[in-house]
């Protein structure tokens, strides 16, 4: 795998007087979290491999405000939102793709009434569109026939009714998808949403990520796919707690594609 990622910032595009096809909103996890950074890179590799003109905001990007809003801090959320909207509008951004369902949900649903109206896509939707347009080709590669299960992120699934795009990609990878007992609109949360990622859980008899991981492990698959950096962390932690990290991999769909296509 080559490590030469080609990433241009929006500022660079603007300096050249050009407009990219899409803005890749990397998100805080994708920018700073070591595990999530790999997902960011994998997505960029795919974009690079088919020469998609995309830009990132780089140092001009800031938290969407999702965890603040879900904690109840509407002030901080709207400060973040309006600052981000100002940046996005100054570059006349039309289409945004993001690897994080929380950023996706916030920009898509909560920015419009504050003056930020964009077409927002989750990376699985974006790639699925490219697939349909014939610009992206996916084959099974080394995964052909392997068993996989997919965890629906709440903020992609129930929150925005997207259950198909990730499953279509899994199908293209010729993987055998074994659904968990609770899937799609019945999917169980990983435990990170609503700002829970940043605090300890309240007293109970189990951690939510363990409950979910046990269900995923029940499918007896060797890969657990997710489409959210936070779900990824929670379930990875769950797999470690169950001492299964040598047998079961928790991967984002773009990581599967990168490995399968040997990018």
């Amino acid at each position: 795998m080559g490590n030469n990622l080609e990433v241009k910032t929006m500022a660079e595009y603007a300096a050249e007087g050009k407009q990219p096809e899409v803005l890749f909103w990397v998100g805080c996890a994708g920018s700073f979290d070591d595990r999530a950074k790999k997902i960011t890179k994998a997505f960029v590799k795919i974009l690079n491999s088919i020469n998609i003109e995309f830009a990132v905001l780089g140092t001009e990007e800031s938290c969407t405000g999702d965890p603040a809003k879900r904690s109840g801090n509407e002030f901080l959320f709207q400060m973040q939102a309006m600052t981000n909207i100002e940046v996005l509008n100054s570059y006349s951004i039309k289409t945004i793709v993001t690897t994080c369902p929380h950023c996706f949900n916030t920009i898509k649903n909560e920015y419009p009434s504050l003056g930020g109206d964009y077409k927002v896509l989750h990376h699985t939707q974006f790639l699925n569109n490219l697939l349909k347009e014939g610009r992206l080709k996916i084959e099974g590669g080394e995964y052909k026939g392997k068993k996989i299960t997919y965890h629906d992120p709440c903020y992609l699934g129930r929150a925005n009714n997207e259950y198909n795009a990730p499953r279509e990609l899994i199908k293209k990878l010729e993987l055998e998808l074994i659904e968990m007992k609770r899937c799609k609109s019945n999917g169980l949360c990983c435990g990170a949403g609503g700002a829970q990622m940043f605090k300890d859980a309240e007293k109970g008899n189990k951690e939510i990520n363990i409950e979910r991981t046990e269900e995923a492990l029940d499918t007896k698959t060797t890969i657990i796919a997710a489409g959210c950096p936070f779900c990824n962390t929670m379930i990875s932690d769950g797999v470690k707690a169950k001492e299964k990290e040598n047998d079961v991999k928790v991967l984002d769909i773009v990581e599967l594609i990168v490995t399968a296509q040997d990018l």
Binding site: L5, V7, T9, V26, C28, G30, S31, F32, D33, K37, T40, K41, V56, L57, G58, T59, E61, S62, C63, G65, P67, A68, S71, G72, N73, L76, M79, Q80, A195, M197, F198, K199, D200
Partner: peptide, 30 residues
């Protein structure tokens, strides 16, 4: 709010991310 959430929120306020990383390092993943 629980202390940890207050920390998260002051991080967002100060450096634009829920963790204490510098906004200037946002592109370092590259």
């Amino acid at each position: 709010a629980p202390l940890e959430l207050n920390n998260m929120m002051s991080n967002i306020e100060n450096n634009g991310a829920p963790w204490p990383y510098n906004q200037m390092d946002r592109l370092n993943w590259k």
